[in-house]
Write a protein that binds this DNA or RNA. Structure first.
Lengths: 338, 338
DNA sequence: TTGAAAGCGCTAACAA
DNA sequence: TTGTTAGCGCTTTCAA
């Protein structure tokens, strides 16, 4: 395995010259560069990342924090799409991406301490579920660069990127109105969760914008299973003046919603329209396929990683937030013959 | 940020003594150890991983290779469960887990070369889809430790861990027979895929073991979408002597199978029983919920990582293969009133 | 435009 | 049981 010294000797130059070429230092004559590059290729030389890291005092890695126990985040297909986006950007910059489970404890220390103090990584990306006061405090204590994906529910201003859930809620209403629905209900998980709250706010924005009146009893909240969706929709259907459309913030719950409607002998989309959030994994598989508010989660990852690198390059830059646009994917569940 | 030198000075010992304590070298008196450990704690000392890596000539990381473009593997919930298992073991050993997309090219080199020659990682875990001749060749060229998860379709003997798909196929038949089904069909993706082939072989084993005769026309092959399942089951239903049960190797296809049966006015599980492979993401959400051949994918990750560490510790050890048992999760789709 | 040499923080062979 | 010292392979300052 060739080292920088071998290259230097073989090329008849000093190691500093080789180093400058590795680092694309412009103060090198074209001919020297050519000569050395050729030797590097001949010797199959690749700089030793450990030595580089030590000398540079940076590990050339960034870390994606996960909470492996948390089914809602880790065991979620979106998560991996985000990871894919992050990974793309990280390797473009010639760094490695480390995955670290925040549950892990190493030698009685939090993995955060271990990574930061051990100089294993230059920056950290956290899902909002991990943007806890404790973690934030620890990161700030070390003035360590980090970015959150998903809007964090934190009193401190943070750097984060999220999809525009509020816009998504509004688009859902707009779409339904355009399809001729007027009595639009809303089913979500707990609105204490920020993304549910934002989707809800967007729903209300949408109603207002379309001259429709918001009704408390049309906005159901809580739950995340198919059974929950079934029950919640059941309640809505039992109203005297039942809704003619429903927006559901969870694709799994949506299946329950759909079932409740069909069980009641009503037809989707004719009697009732459904818009679900989050296309994957099941909206397409439902019968009929569900119209969704879809989201570019890959882009979420890309932008998160970019924000982190900006922060690493310029630690004093201002706090930043980015929202990524959502988009309606119209399918059968709202294709009402007008 | 305290270094080993700071600790040494503060404790009135040499750096080698501190180093020995870090590395739990037994040749240190108890009192010295106590003294130094206390100083380490006081100074908040954590060994610099980059320096350690350089000095030890190992990066203290292992890599999980992914193919981010390959929806079938990367964008698959199982994958992340496997990752979780791997991650657990890796951090127990105080190493980091790197994620590397094999699609990535860095400075015109394959990421494999970049990782290996750059000494960024000590070992690699590959999904079987990435155990290509090219990758294997490159890894072997460097005598680099690697383990595959999922049985690879490779002429070379490799170290791998997989779930016991063949056993799963057999269990599916056993279960159906126990529920009183006799005319058992089999629907899978292409049997050129090893896992489908193994499930198929298990199916045949199961038939034989239960004294049933294998019929070509009961074994459909190819496809992976809901629509494929619908079509393939349609064909089976049109047979004069249609099956009274079906094993489907893909949970998404299973939804199509279910739909075909219901469309034909037949009932599940009364007229026809269904066993699907792979519980997540949809088998539970189907109506009725599907009996599945379920698999401990977390364990798959754990065992894969363990195998890798064995290999790293002992590079000359024999090739090894491990199969993890499968298990029937009985649900409504096979609960036939006998 | 290039080279000599010190240093990044740790480990380990050797000596005591 | 502990200390001295020479690296590990790279970067970078300073001098030429």
């Amino acid at each position: 395995m060739a080292s920088i010294k071998d290259v230097a000797i073989a090329a008849g130059v000093s190691t500093s010259t080789v180093s400058r070429i590795i680092n694309e230092n412009p103060a090198i004559s074209a001919e020297t560069r050519e000569k050395v590059l050729k030797v590097m290729k001949d010797l199959d030389y690749v700089p030793n990342s450990m030595a580089r890291a030590l000398s540079n005092q940076r590990a050339f890695t960034v870390t994606l924090a996960i909470n492996a126990e948390d089914v809602k985040s880790f065991n979620n297909p979106f998560f991996y799409e985000v990871m894919h986006g992050i990974e793309k950007v990280v390797y473009q910059k010639d760094l490695c991406l480390i995955i670290a489970n925040m549950q892990t404890v190493i030698k009685k220390e939090s993995i955060l301490t271990w990574l930061i103090n051990g100089k294993r990584t230059q920056g950290i990306i956290l899902p909002s579920s991990l943007a806890t006061e404790k973690n934030i405090k620890e990161l700030n204590k070390h003035h360590f660069p980090f970015v959150v994906f998903g809007e964090p529910d934190s009193p401190d201003p943070l750097n984060w990127v999220d999809v525009n859930n509020r816009q998504g809620g509004q688009q859902a209403v707009d779409h339904l109105v355009k399809q001729g629905y007027r009595r639009i209900a809303f089913i979500s998980g707990s609105r204490k969760e920020l993304f549910n709250k934002n989707r809800f706010l967007g729903y209300r924005d949408g109603l207002e914008r379309n001259g429709l009146t918001f009704r408390e009893d049309f906005a159901a909240e809580g739950g995340n299973t198919k059974a929950d969706g079934l029950a919640m929709m059941g309640t809505l259907l039992s109203l005297d003046d039942r809704p003619d459309a429903v927006i559901c913030t969870d694709s799994i719950m949506s299946l329950g919603v759909l079932k409740a409607i069909q069980k009641a002998g009503l037809s989707v989309p004719h009697d009732i329209g459904i818009v679900s959030f989050d296309n994957y994994p099941v909206a397409d598989l439902a019968d009929p396929p569900l119209t969704t508010v879809d989201v570019d989660v890959y882009e979420l990852g890309v932008q998160t990683a970019n924000m982190l690198f900006k922060l690493i390059d310029n630690p004093l830059s201002r706090q930043q937030q980015t929202l990524i646009a959502t988009e309606i994917q119209a399918k059968e569940s709202t294709m009402r013959a007008k």
